[in-house]
């Protein structure tokens, strides 16, 4: 099972289920996961000021689904009320719950090709939980092979998912604050320079006075750079630029983390790293004020 944390909702899913659809909207959205042959799971969310009347909701739901489902009946799993029925050659089961910690109504949809897999449903539903910001004010995300912690005020501004290339950008409430996380695959086919050189080439012309910093070495060969962020334009705020890149010895992927922040709001990335980034115990550190 692999953990997935998206928009403060955490769930553990079979490793072979991959996310093929996602939404960035914090108010309402969906992540859909598929195995090799079909969609298997869908996680829907919607902000709600309070817990809805599930009895009434299920009744309405049953009425609307009766047109497309056969043998529709009520089901309950791990305390989640739901409905199950047959749609064509597949069994679809929908369960709903309310996560009061984050004020979100969550719906989990399972799609099975043959028969309903009750045990897997129970296992997955038991793992669905709210992931509120941590005590240090950082919000945890875990998606597309990356584990990220960003300040809780940051919003997911962009998410690009392509084969062997994933990028997620989190925007802070004030410009130019943004944290970017990228993960690249098939590194051997395109990375023809050392990671150090590649990292410097990615800084772009808006990052000035870029200097290499001690990266820590290790098996991942972590490389770090820091510099000034000077956007073109008189009224645009300047700031600090810091980035790190490393090749994970575990999956062979290249990870790239960028932090662009205003001078007055410098923050440190937490040193605690997750399993996916154990190669880089302190993968990104923005210098504090006065830190030369």
């Amino acid at each position: 099972m692999v953990e997935w944390v998206w928009r403060q909702i955490g769930v553990e899913l079979p490793a072979e289920w991959e996310c093929l659809q996602f939404a960035r909207d914090p108010e309402a959205g969906r992540c859909a996961f598929a195995d090799r042959h079909r969609y298997r799971f869908e996680l829907n969310w919607r902000k709600s000021p309070g817990e809805p009347d599930f009895g009434r909701m299920m009744k309405d739901y049953e009425g609307s689904l009766a047109k497309e489902w056969e043998g529709i009946r009520k089901a309950k799993c791990r305390g989640w009320p739901g409905l199950t029925g047959r749609r064509g050659g597949e069994v679809v089961s929908r369960f709903g719950t309310y996560l009061p910690e984050i004020g979100v109504l969550v719906e989990a949809v399972f799609i099975d090709a043959g028969e309903r897999d009750d045990r897997l449903e129970a296992k997955v539903l038991a793992s669905v939980r709210a992931v509120p910001p941590e005590a240090n004010g950082m919000q945890r995300w875990r998606a597309f092979g990356m584990e990220m912690r960003v300040p809780r005020t940051f919003e997911l501004g962009e998410c690009v998912v392509e084969p062997a290339r994933v990028g997620m950008r989190f925007d802070g409430p004030r410009s130019p604050d943004r944290w970017i996380f990228r993960r690249y695959g098939m590194v051997g086919t395109w990375l023809k320079t050392p990671v150090r050189e590649w990292l410097a080439s990615q800084a772009g012309e808006l990052a000035r006075n870029v200097k290499f910093k001690p990266g820590g070495g290790g098996a991942a060969q972590l490389e770090r750079i820091e510099g000034e962020w000077r956007p073109k334009g008189l009224l645009l705020r300047k700031g600090a630029y810091a980035a790190a890149a490393w090749k994970s010895p575990e999956d062979g992927r290249l990870y790239h983390a960028i932090c662009i922040t205003g001078r007055k709001s410098r923050r440190f990335h937490p040193a605690a790293a997750d399993a996916a980034m154990t190669a880089c115990p302190e993968f990104l550190r923005v210098p504090a004020e006065g830190d030369a």
């Binding site: 090799r36 042959h37 079909r38 969609y39 829907n44 809805p52 909701m57 609307s64 749609r87």
Partner: peptide, 19 residues
Amino acid sequence: MSRRIQTASAPGAWDDMLK
């Protein structure tokens, strides 16, 4: 939630192609 009853089903969207 009732507005979101369209499951991302598309069974076989890529299955025939895989075969």
